Measured scan of single mutants.
Amino acid sequence: MATDAALRRLLRLHRTEIAVAVDSAFPLLHALADHDVVPEDKFQETLHLKEKEGCPQAFHALLSWLLTQDSTAILDFWRVLFKDYNLERYGRLQPILDSFPKDVDLSQPRKGRKPPAVPKALVPPPRLPTKRKASEEARAAAPAALTPRGTASPGSQLKAKPPKKPESSAEQQRLPLGNGIQTMSASVQRAVAMSSGDVPGARGAVEGILIQQVFESGGSKKCIQVGGEFYTPSKFEDSGSGKNKARSSSGPKPLVRAKGAQGAAPGGGEARLGQQGSVPAPLALPSDPQLHQKNEDECAVCRDGGELICCDGCPRAFHLACLSPPLREIPSGTWRCSSCLQATVQEVQPRAEEPRPQEPPVETPLPPGLRSAGEEVRGPPGEPLAGMDTTLVYKHLPAPPSAAPLPGLDSSALHPLLCVGPEGQQNLAPGARCGVCGDGTDVLRCTHCAAAFHWRCHFPAGTSRPGTGLRCRSCSGDVTPAPVEGVLAPSPARLAPGPAKDDTASHEPALH
C-alpha cells in the first residue's frame, strides 16, 4: 500500500513536468492505449483535445483523470512512461527518471493478473537440437547421386540401376557391380574402391570401400567397409609401409569409374585409389579445392560414357583410347591431361624469361682521411668538412668512354686558381681547403699541381719545410723540376691526363 501511495503522490508531483515534456501524442498516448491504461473513449478524447488546445494541455488533463483511477493503472502508467522508446522521444523525461526514488519498484506484477504457477513436473524439458533432418536429407541425396545420367557406350558392359529405396527402410541396399565389389548404403556420403591386398588381414578377392557413415545421432565417422563389417581407420595404420605414394595433400579420389555407378572395369580391371599401398590413418579432407572437384561422367573428346580416367587438374575425364597418344593402361600417381600440362608450361616460361635485376654498384670503404676530388669540390665554400675520421664509401662506377685530351690552356685561363699578391707571391683563392683534413686555415699551394695542403698533414714525420718551391706529398717525388717562383700557373702540358701512381689516385688537379 505504501508503494501505491508513493506512486500516486509522484504522479501528482510530476504531472506538469510530464505534460510539458510530452510534445507529441505518439508514441506515449498510443502505448498507453495498447497496454489498456487508457480506454478507447479517453484516447479519442485526448486526441481531440490535443487538436484543440495543444499537446501539453491534453496530457495534463489525461494525467488528472489518471489520478482518479486505481493503483494498478497508475503503476502501469509509470512502466509505459519509462520505456526506452519514450525516453528517446521525450528527452525531458530523463530528469524525472533520475529523480525517481530508488525504493519504488516498478517491476512488480499487476494485482489480480498474476499467472498461475505451473508445477515443475509438468514443464517439459527442453529438446536438444538434433541433426536428424540433415541425416534424412543426406539419405535422400545419396540415391540421386547414384542414378545414371545416360546410357553407357556399346563397348562398356557395366550397366546398373540402383533400385529405389524407401527412406523408412534401415537395411542396406547393395548393387552387384562384379568382381566382388559392393556399394555402400544410402547413408554413405562418398565411396572409393580399395584393393584388398592393401588391407592387412583381408582374405580372398574381397575389396573394401572407404566410406563416411552418417549415424542417426547426427555425428559422422569415417571407416572402411569390408564385406558386411565396418573398420575404423586406426586398424589399417601401417607405419612400416615404404610404398606409400601419396598425392599432394591428398584424400582418396576415384580416378576410374563407370558411368552411372562406381566400380571396377569389366574384364577384371581393378579400380585404383589416388594413392597406392596401405590406407593412410588420417582421412581428413584435403585443403586443395581441386581434389574436391567432381569430374564429368562423359569423355571430353567423344562425349560418351564408359570407363573413364579423370584428370587431377580439371573436371574433365577421358577414354584411354581417346587420348593423344592413347594409353594402354592407367598410369600410377597423379595424372593430368594435356591442357593442364600446357597451362603449367605456359606459367613457367614467362618466369624464366623475366630479366634479372641489375646488381647495385659495389661499394668499397675508403680509409679515414681520404676523399675523392669530387667530394672536395662539392663541399660548401668557406666551411670545414665535419666528421673527417668517419669511413667514407667510394662507389665503383662504370668507366666513362675515352675522351680526347684536354686542349692547351693559356696562363690567363688559370687566373682564378691563384691570386698574385703585391710581391708576386701566389695566394690561395677563397674557399681553398686541405685535401686531407678539410680545413682551409693557413693552407699552402703546391707549386707543381696548384693543390691546397697543410705541410703537417702531408709530411707528418716532421720534415723541414723548404723556403721556396713548396710541393705536396703527391708531387714531391716527381722528377720534373719545380717552376720558378712567381709564375702564375704550371705549363698547360702538365694538365694533360697521364698515368698516375697508386698513392696519388685520389689527388687529381682540382679547380677552386
Rank of each mutant, 00 (worst) to 15 (best):
P119Y: 15
P95F: 13
A117M: 08
A25K: 04
S107E: 07
G112Q: 14
G204L: 03
D198Y: 10
K83F: 02
G267A: 08
S250E: 04
V118Q: 06
C223Q: 04
N244R: 05
E171Q: 12
F82A: 00
S24C: 06
P200G: 08
L122E: 07
P56N: 02
D105G: 05
Q172V: 12
K159I: 14
T16N: 05
G112D: 12
R15L: 04
P109H: 13
A25C: 04
S64Y: 04
K52H: 00
L29M: 01
T147L: 11
L62D: 01
A134W: 02
L158E: 10
G178N: 03
Y231N: 07
Q173T: 14
E171R: 13
Q225V: 01
G91W: 15
G260E: 10
T147I: 12
E171G: 13
L93S: 01
D70Q: 04
D84S: 11
G180C: 13
A134H: 05
T151H: 14
G208D: 03
A140D: 11
P109S: 11
R190V: 02
A58Q: 00
G263D: 14
A193D: 10
R9Y: 08
G218N: 02
D36S: 03
A33D: 00
G218L: 10
L11F: 02
H30I: 00
P129W: 01
R149N: 06
Q157F: 15
R127E: 03
L66T: 01
K114C: 11
S185R: 08
S71I: 05
K221P: 07
A265P: 07
E136D: 05
F230R: 05
L13A: 03
D23L: 00
F43C: 02
L122I: 05
R257F: 07
A33C: 08
S153V: 08
G91C: 01
A202K: 02
D84Q: 03
I224P: 04
L128R: 05
R113W: 06
V104P: 04
A160S: 12
I224V: 05
S196W: 04
T16A: 00
T46M: 15
G251V: 13
F100T: 00
Q225W: 05
A33R: 00
G242I: 00
L7H: 09
G178A: 04
K102N: 14
L7G: 01
V80E: 01
H60F: 11
L158K: 02
F26A: 01
R127N: 11
R190D: 03
R203L: 11
K42G: 00
G219C: 15
I96P: 01
E137F: 14
G180E: 03
D84N: 05
S220L: 10
G201H: 10
E237K: 09
K159F: 14
Y231S: 04
C223F: 03
D70I: 04
G155V: 05
A145E: 02
L175H: 14
G180V: 05
R15V: 02
K42I: 04
